[in-house]
């Protein structure tokens, strides 16, 4: 129990708040009903992740992380949202994302998942130097909520955003767990993400070109 007076350093608190923003933007994505605002929220979330990377770089004096921060900023805050927004603009139909559940139900489910994630992390013997353990718990929550997002939404934009934000959650987790990861590996991860984004974009276009919609409701032919 955090007794009076033993308040942790303000820096850690700031990092916690940013990590919280990552989770809150995930929740916002979950409930947001416009594809466009979902993409913007993703951009905001990526911004928070980049800031966290910069925070770790500064406090841990890991110069390589600055480069990573810059890369992920350019890629995830600017390029990806721009590409998807353009796609959404081109389609012009059903830019409202769809829900399979009521918003309140969804948020409650997501809360349950978050609690689960945080409690699991709470039982782990992890001691990180780079970020408070809370960030790891929140990252776990982000990942779980991202799964929920992909499951309860049935349009390709939401599903793609769900995957990208899952990756953001993993990024936060990796900042906690593996801040010292060698640069070459980090760059490989990022490069991979880039390729994945291209593929997602391509498939979204294929899907849109074939079915004139971004909804996945038409994707029910293959079953059994």
């Amino acid at each position: 129990m955090a007794a009076l007076g033993t308040s942790p350093s303000t820096l850690t608190d700031a990092a916690d708040v940013i990590a919280l923003l990552v989770l809150l933007s995930e929740f916002a994505m979950l409930r947001s009903s416009l594809s466009r605002s979902q993409v913007r929220l993703y951009g905001f979330q990526s911004l928070c992740v980049s800031v966290l990377a910069g925070f770790v770089a500064a406090t841990q004096h890991i110069g390589e992380l600055y480069g990573l921060m810059g890369l992920s900023f350019v890629l995830k805050v600017i390029v990806v949202p721009m590409v998807i927004l353009r796609l959404v603009r081109e389609v012009r139909v059903d830019v409202t994302a769809s829900h399979r559940l009521g918003v309140a139900t969804m948020v409650l489910l997501a809360i349950v998942l978050s609690v689960f994630g945080v409690f699991v992390v709470g039982r782990l013997p992890v001691h990180s130097h780079s970020l408070p353990i809370l960030a790891l718990g929140l990252a776990a929550a982000v990942i779980l909520v991202a799964f929920l997002l992909v499951i309860v939404r049935n349009d390709v934009v939401s599903q793609a955003i769900g995957f990208f934000s899952l990756e953001n959650g993993v990024s936060v987790a990796s900042l906690v767990l593996a801040a010292g990861l060698p640069l070459i590996v980090e760059v490989a991860f990022l490069f991979d993400l880039l390729v994945a984004v291209v593929v997602f974009g391509l498939l979204m276009r294929v899907h849109q070109g074939r079915s004139r919609t971004l909804s996945t409701r038409a994707l029910d032919r293959l079953r059994g």
């Binding site: 995957f163 899952l166 990756e167 994945a196 032919r221 293959l222």
Partner: peptide, 22 residues
């Protein structure tokens, strides 16, 4: 149509799985 559907499911599910693997 079938290929587009299968590819979308595949890339989405496999990528999510690989996120967990990461």
């Amino acid at each position: 149509d079938g290929a587009a559907e299968a590819a979308w499911k595949y890339v989405l599910i496999a990528s999510m799985g690989l996120g967990i693997a990461l």
